[in-house]
Simulated assay, not measured.
Amino acid sequence: MSSDGLWSIGELAGRAGVTVKAVRFYSERGLLPEAERSSGGHRRYGAEALERLRLIRSLRGLDLPLAEVERVLPGAAGVREEEGVRAEALEEVVADELRRVRGRLAELRWREASLRLVQDGTAAERVERLRLVGAVAVPPDTDAMARFWRRILPVRLPGRVVSLVVDAVVPQPPRDPDPEQVLAFARLHALVTDPRLDGAEFRPAPPLPDGEYRPAVLYEGLAEAYALAAAEVGAGRGPEGGGALDRFVSAYADARGEPDGAAFRHRLVGWLAVHDGPVIGRYWKLAAGLFAPGEPVLGVLHHQLSVALRGQVRAGTG
């Protein structure tokens, strides 16, 4: 430092551990305050410029784009050391970058698990698995599954109920998946995007046979039944307890406008056997391992309630 307490551009660059080119670039962008110019027109810098360079290096070290750095740092003109950074802008920029980093980490975790899945298979399995994981976006999304359910749900179902159903039946991709979860997700994606679903023989059956029924009444009633069943399962009991099975049956009876009784329960067993066909059964078999631990899996609860109803009807106690 010279007798006037100022540094040349080269001295500042050396102290900050950056190149002269970098100092000149940041100066021209208005990020570095100049104390004055020498008699020869050369830039001279004081201590606040060194502090500012260290802040810039820190921000760039976090991989923040230059435009974001400029958002965070106040203009060089009139900068005082105590001003530091724009606190609100720094908070926003860091939050945005953190979201991007988390997204990249999720992508890398998914890619790692996918590579392990392919690597661990036999020669024949590797080709099949490669095709499956190659059809899934990275990081994965649930758009195809949501479209599947929106397509098979009754057209008369109110939008708010459709959204509730889709949120409950579509599993989110695991944040840190293992290879088996990647395989299940990829197979689930293949199932819901199978073009054969456009054919009548593969299309899932409606929840009730042809005839008038109120879809909103059915699905809202089923939601209550599943909640009761989940509470029973969480308490270590069967899902048919706590009124869950009766609410399950009454959801269908109320939707049809029929009384709940032995005759209705006998017919409902037949309807459920048709509705719980191979496509829906396959969906829930693949999806079950993708829900978070402790999260109720509606397909499993539905199956358990259906089995309980079938057992009750066969025993003649319904």
Rank of each mutant, 00 (worst) to 15 (best):
A135N: 02
R99E: 13
R111G: 07
P65S: 06
A67E: 15
L117Q: 01
A47R: 12
A67G: 12
D120N: 02
R104N: 03
A137K: 07
G84T: 11
A123S: 11
G103K: 09
E128M: 00
R131A: 13
R71Y: 00
F148G: 03
R57M: 12
R104D: 10
R57Q: 15
W110G: 07
R60Y: 00
E91Q: 14
P140N: 06
A113W: 00
A137H: 03
Q119L: 14
R116H: 08
S58D: 12
E92P: 04
V127T: 09
L64I: 11
R100N: 04
A113H: 03
L90Q: 06
R102H: 14
I56A: 05
L73I: 12
A144K: 06
W110E: 07
E107Y: 01
E81K: 13
G134S: 08
A113K: 04
G61Q: 05
G134R: 04
M145C: 06
R129F: 08
A87V: 14
E48S: 13
A77S: 15
R116A: 03
A87F: 05
G121N: 01
G46D: 03
R52I: 00
L115R: 15
A47L: 15
A124L: 11
R129V: 06
E125Q: 10
A95Y: 02
E70C: 03
G61R: 04
G121Y: 00
S114F: 06
E128V: 05
R60S: 03
V133K: 01
L90E: 08
Q119S: 14
A76T: 14
G121P: 00
V118Y: 05
R54E: 13
V136D: 06
R126G: 12
R104W: 12
R99Y: 03
E70L: 01
L66F: 08
E91C: 08
A95I: 05
A106M: 13
E68V: 02
V93G: 04
A77Y: 10
V85S: 01
V72E: 01
L66W: 07
A135L: 03
R57P: 11
R60H: 05
R111P: 03
E68M: 01
T122R: 08
R129Y: 12
V133P: 02
E83Y: 02
A135V: 09
R99S: 09
A137I: 00
V136P: 04
G103W: 06
D120I: 02
R80W: 05
E107N: 07
P65N: 08
P65L: 08
D141N: 15
S58I: 11
P140Q: 03
A67R: 15
V85P: 00
L59P: 09
